[in-house]
């Protein structure tokens, strides 16, 4: 027997997946602890969430036990640059669109998300940010009349 097959956890990715499901179920159980469960005849608000949360926990255990019985893929490598800038750009958009308007939020989101890729050239991204912003303003605000603030600090809407 090789070292490989003797490992205790044979499918690290599945083990992580199982733990994730258990964690999700446990979190839901904790959140729903205060809700009335009711009876089978008349369900309370807590009945369904509690049943489902327990089912999640059970499924998590099943996946985790499977991870100890059968060989499976390893955990993949995580990167941080992509999630940080891509999701960061959405967060930045969400935080700035009301107070500062689309004239600020849209180019900010383009520039920030551009940072996620190592292929990005700064000058190109800057020009592209302006082009996209003008396009979005034209399409969403002026053609489709969606009520998105444009630049409240400069023009009042």
């Amino acid at each position: 027997m090789t070292q490989e097959t003797k490992r205790f956890i044979r499918a690290p990715q599945d083990m992580a997946a199982g733990l994730f499901l258990i964690g999700l179920g446990a979190f839901a159980l904790w959140q729903n602890a205060g809700l009335e469960r009711g009876t089978l005849r008349v369900f309370g608000p807590g009945m369904m969430p509690t049943i489902l949360a327990w089912a999640c926990v059970v499924a998590g255990f099943a996946v985790g036990i499977g991870a100890m019985l059968w060989n499976g893929p390893k955990l993949e490598r995580w990167t941080f640059r992509g999630p940080l800038f891509i999701l960061g750009s959405a967060v930045a958009f969400g935080l700035t669109v009301r107070p500062l308007g689309m004239a600020v939020a849209a180019p900010l989101a383009v520039l920030l998300s551009s940072m996620a890729s190592s292929e990005t050239k700064l000058g190109e991204a800057a020009i592209f940010a302006i082009v996209i912003t003008v396009f979005c303003l034209g399409l969403f605000r002026f053609m489709l009349n969606l009520p998105i603030p444009v630049a409240p600090w400069a023009i009042g809407y």
Binding site: A90, F93, V97, A109, V110, S113, F128, I132, F140, L146
Partner: peptide, 25 residues
């Protein structure tokens, strides 16, 4: 490298516009 920032902005505007809610984004 140019496509995904544009997609991101369209997505953000789309999500914001559904309920006019920055929190949704």
């Amino acid at each position: 490298r140019l496509m995904f920032p544009a997609i991101m902005v369209f997505c953000c505007i789309g999500i914001y516009s559904i309920n006019n809610s920055p929190q949704d984004v």
